[in-house]
Amino acid sequence: MASWKRDFASGLVVLGPILVTLYAIYWLYGLAAGLTPGLILSADALEPLISGSSAQAAQTREQVAQFLRVIVALTVFVILTFSVGYLMRTTIGGLVERLVDNLANRVPVIRVVYNASKMAAETAFGEQESLQKPVKIETWEGLRMTAFKTGKVTTDGREVLFLPTSPNITTGYVIEVEPDEITELDEDVEDALTRVLSAGFGDANHRGMDAGISIDVIDEAKTSRTDDD
């Protein structure tokens, strides 16, 4: 009984992320194909390459044309993104950005959506300082919590730390702590983040089913308690 449970759980650990990733790619492709205009490339233009008047040939031409339209649209988007990014490094780019911000902030509903999406983009793709060495701080007597150095220091000499919540590390608290109240840890950021993300159960050196308690051990413990009763 315990063996097939462990095998099934191990299979889910491997196949689950793969299936979710494939579905996300399929969904994004369908979204891009639906938004791509047919004016970019008509299916009739592929008739010299894919000849035939049958329904199967027409469907094949349409599928190939749709795929090529997605490739063209993504290429244009990437070029446009790089061009805008390069423009933002110039004085004109800064002026354009401030102009767009001012216009968006004057519209009540658009202002909320624009600022929220801009903040999300800056958080995900912006050039921000990465989390540095993890540390421990004693928030209450005898209770320690994991935090991360940000590399910032206040004017009065306190170190600025980020104290994430678990298991959602995208939220947390920015705290200012005296240097002598910080306990240095002999581990890297990945180890500390793994512990926080897994609510204390994970281990960066062990992935998958090896990171937790064996199902066999749990089942044996249940069986032992049943026999004792």
Results as ranks from 00 to 15, higher is better:
Ala43His: 06
Ser51Asn: 05
Val113Asp: 10
Ser53Pro: 03
Pro37Met: 02
Ile110Gln: 03
Asn115Gln: 15
Thr36Tyr: 01
Val72Gln: 03
Ser51Met: 10
Gln59Gly: 13
Ile79Val: 15
Glu47Cys: 02
Ser53His: 13
Val78Ser: 06
Gly52Trp: 05
Val112Leu: 11
Phe82Pro: 00
Ser117Ile: 09
Pro37Gln: 01
Glu47Gly: 02
Ile50Trp: 02
Phe77Ile: 07
Ile50Arg: 03
Gly52Lys: 09
Asp101Gln: 13
Phe67Glu: 00
Leu46Glu: 04
Leu46Asn: 04
Ala104Val: 08
Val100Ile: 15
Val109Arg: 14
Gly85Asp: 04
Ala33Asn: 08
Ser117Asp: 03
Arg69Ser: 03
Gly34His: 04
Leu95Thr: 11
Thr81Tyr: 12
Ile92Phe: 14
Phe67His: 05
Ile92His: 07
Leu39Pro: 00
Tyr86Leu: 09
Leu74Asp: 09
Asp44Ser: 14
Ile110Ser: 10
Val113Phe: 15
Ala73Gly: 00
Ile79Ser: 06
Ser51Trp: 07
Thr75Glu: 04
Thr75Asn: 06
Ala65Asp: 05
Leu35Asn: 08
Asp44Asn: 10
Gln63Cys: 00
Ala58Asp: 11
Thr36Cys: 05
Ser51Val: 06
Ala45Thr: 08
Thr90Ser: 10
Val72Ala: 15
Leu80Gln: 11
Ile110Asn: 01
Leu74Trp: 13
Gln66Ser: 12
Leu31Val: 04
Gln56Leu: 13
Asp44Ala: 13
Val64Trp: 07
Gly38Asn: 03
Ala32Asp: 00
Asn105His: 12
Gln59Ile: 01
Asp101Cys: 11
Ala43Arg: 13
Val107Thr: 12
Leu103Phe: 14
Asn105Tyr: 04
Glu62Met: 02
Ser53Cys: 05
Glu97Asp: 13
Gly52His: 11
Tyr114Ile: 01
Glu97Lys: 14
Ser42Ile: 05
Leu103Trp: 11
Leu87Cys: 09
Val109His: 12
Thr36Gly: 01
Arg61Ala: 07
Val84Ile: 15
Ile40Arg: 06
Val70Gln: 07
Arg111Leu: 07
Gly52Ala: 10
Ala104Tyr: 00
Gln56Ser: 11
Lys118Asp: 02
